[in-house]
Design a binder for these strands. Sequence first.
DNA 1: GTACAGGCAGTAT
DNA 2: ATACTGCCTGTA
Length: 266
Amino acid sequence: MWERYDRRWYGVNGERIIRISVVNGKYEITYFPDLSSYEDDYFRSDDNIAEIFSEISREPFVAELLKAYPGLRLLRQHPFQCLISFICATNSTIPAIRASLIRLCRTLGKEVMIDGNKFYTFPDPAALANSTIKQLRSCSVGYRAPAIKETSCSVFDGSIDLQSLRRVGYEQARERLLTLSGVGHKVADCVMLFSLDKLDAFPVDVWIHRALAANYRALVRNLPNKLSPRQYEIVSSSVRNYFGRYAGYAQQFLYYYIRNQAGRTW
DNA sequence: GTACAGGCAGTAT
DNA sequence: ATACTGCCTGTA
């Protein structure tokens, strides 16, 4: 969801556009509109990186990866955008996901002009809740359209309150997220880690599954090829226990590492 | 053309 | 509980 114009990068985060410029070799971040709370700080500048890195370095392989990719960070995405994005991502590939999200913004988001360039915000819950399946399908989300609409309705009518999930623990947040259409364990973990500040959430997708199989045989013995929901929970609880309270940060490094191993460039 | 990548939900055992 | 199946799009 990032685009470059005239040596600057622009990204969409919910109702906001984020601009990154390089000025005298330093990054300059500008939010449109301005930030009002740390909850919208996309780059997590409130994180105590020294403490987090020191904590996850206790695990030897992750300690190596920290040295290999010292600039890698978690981001704090807009919760609703994050939720819909990961529903779109189920059983899909990064180029396809990207195409869907761009079309959702263009079709149902609001147009804004910044530096003479046109951008579209991510559609709010009302916009997606009131959209038609046909409109959603025109954004190439395929069979995920009904789940996107149903989940947007749940957010819009208040039957789930994403903001309030920031203030409850991992288990409780997960339980609520799993009630949503199109949300299973993996999507719930992604939403919690990437938007709800649950740094102990550890999403297990096919890539992390491969990383666990390749490097953590002792930790997850007899790892099945495909994880049923029950097996996901078993694997999840053992890796979360092993990697500790910043397991999600460790996950980010493992994910990056295993994709590099496979020669993926997104 | 055709294979492949990629989680969730519904149904049957 | 577990196994199987269908679903849709973009890229190689």
